[in-house]
Amino acid sequence: MSLEELGKLVEDGETEEAQELAEKLLKDGTDPLKMIAEMTRTMARVGDLFAKLEIFLPEIMLAGEALSGVVEVMAPYLEAVGGRVVKGKIVIGVVKGDLHEIGKNIVKLILETNGFEVKDLGYNVDSLTFIKEAEAMGADFIGASSLMTTTIPRQKEIIELLKAKGIREQYKVVIGGAPTSQMWADQIGADLYCKDAKSAPELMSNLLNS
């Protein structure tokens, strides 16, 4: 029974077994911060495998579920040592008129497994809804995804609405999706463009700490 075994169970997406082992390890006195560190290493490994498509989306989703299960078990133990460090809060969704959400779902998972608190707004999300949800959450970021050239103007619309409401500086706007680019991000005044899911956590952390 070790943290490495727990990591393997999470990697294999075995939620129930991982939860049972986590509970046992914690009761036996394992440092929850060490467990968090092991989970971070595990998900980095899983993320790398997925980036190279040595595993596929269903496998990383299962690993993500198992991780959530373990985090749930760890919650009271983490509270006792000061709580889990949240790297940032984000509302994320696919813009209005766009029904393609696979990319957004991958980004959501990668962010969650890297210590971000994520509120998923789904797809076909009105621009004002992004803002209202960000306000309600006290988010640091608004993440807007788009797969179609005819829906990327909605990313710009979010920024324009933030300006119109006089709260542009309160949120970092992150954009992504197949037709988007750094050039488009610059053009609409987005704070960050992520070309893929894997790069998002580090780029967002850097932006928040800059």
């Binding site: 209005k96 766009d98 179609m148 050239t149 005819t150 829906t151 103007p153 909605r154």
Partner: peptide, 11 residues
């Protein structure tokens, strides 16, 4: 992407 200079927005 544009029609008569206006960015096309879905729907």
């Amino acid at each position: 992407e544009k029609t008569f200079g206006h960015l096309i927005e879905s729907s």
